[in-house]
Amino acid sequence: MNPADHVGTEPSDEEVILQALRILRARFQERDVFASPDSVKDYLRLQAQGLPYEVFAVMFLDSHRRLLAYEPLFRGTLSQTAVYPREILKRALAVNAAAVVLHHNHPSGVCEPSRSDELLTSTVKASLALVDIRVLDHIITSDFGALSMVERGLL
């Protein structure tokens, strides 16, 4: 094949990101997603990269901590999102999840959890515990980094 045939056919950044997400999703479906906490953070950062609004999503995991689904459940504004624990619980039961990782982004670039982030995490954890679904972590991402509430001792 002639190298000139590839001129102007380089994939866009969006196509590269989508391909990376497909690869990461396949890896998470094959093994325990917590084999590498940094890979989980990278995966979640890619999911919300560049968004100008907050998204609250959930990684639903099976009993071997393999990824069943990653689903953005709530969309908000630049600085807040309304999250309903009942809807998270309903979806977790529907996909037969044994555990979850909560995720939301901070478009401001600052990954520090707010007091409302901490309260929400506690509420969701208590709600899911009633039906034996564990909250393994709540990860906050931005275009510049990621914060694990477990690593911070907040969960």
Score class of each variant (00 low, 15 high):
His106Cys: 10
Tyr70Val: 04
Thr81Arg: 04
Arg91Val: 01
Leu73Gly: 09
Val100Ser: 03
Ala82Glu: 13
Ser79Asp: 14
Arg75Gln: 13
Pro85Asn: 00
Cys111Asn: 10
Pro85Gln: 02
Thr77Ala: 11
Arg91Gly: 03
Pro107Gly: 07
Leu102Met: 10
Arg91His: 13
Leu89Asn: 03
Glu71Arg: 12
His104Ile: 04
Leu93Tyr: 11
Leu102Gly: 04
Ser108Cys: 06
Arg91Ser: 08
Gly109Thr: 05
Leu93Met: 15
Arg86Tyr: 11
Pro85Gly: 01
Arg75Ser: 13
Asn96Arg: 15
His106Gly: 09
Ser79Ala: 05
Glu71Gly: 02
Leu73Tyr: 05
Cys111Phe: 02
Val95Trp: 14
Leu102Tyr: 00
Pro113Lys: 03
Val95Ala: 14
Leu73Ala: 07
Leu78Gly: 00
Arg75Val: 14
Leu73His: 07
Thr77Ser: 15
Pro85Glu: 02
Ala99Thr: 10
Cys111Asp: 03
Ala97Thr: 12
Tyr84Cys: 05
Phe74Val: 08
Arg91Pro: 02
Ser79Glu: 11
Ser108Met: 03
Pro72Gln: 05
Leu102Asp: 03
Leu89Glu: 08
Pro72Tyr: 06
Gly76Arg: 11
Leu93Asp: 13
His106Ile: 07
Ile88Phe: 00
Leu78Pro: 01
Ala97Tyr: 12
Val100Cys: 04
Thr81Cys: 14
Leu89Ser: 07
Ala99Ile: 10
Leu73Trp: 08
Ala92Cys: 10
His104Asn: 11
Tyr70Asn: 04
Arg91Lys: 15
Pro107Tyr: 12
Glu112Val: 01
Thr77Tyr: 10
Val95Ser: 11
Arg91Phe: 09
Glu71Ile: 11
Ala97Trp: 12
Leu78Phe: 14
Val83Ala: 02
Ala69Leu: 14
Leu89Asp: 00
Arg75His: 14
Val101Cys: 04
Val100Tyr: 05
Ile88Lys: 05
Ser79Gln: 08
Arg86Asn: 06
Leu102Pro: 06
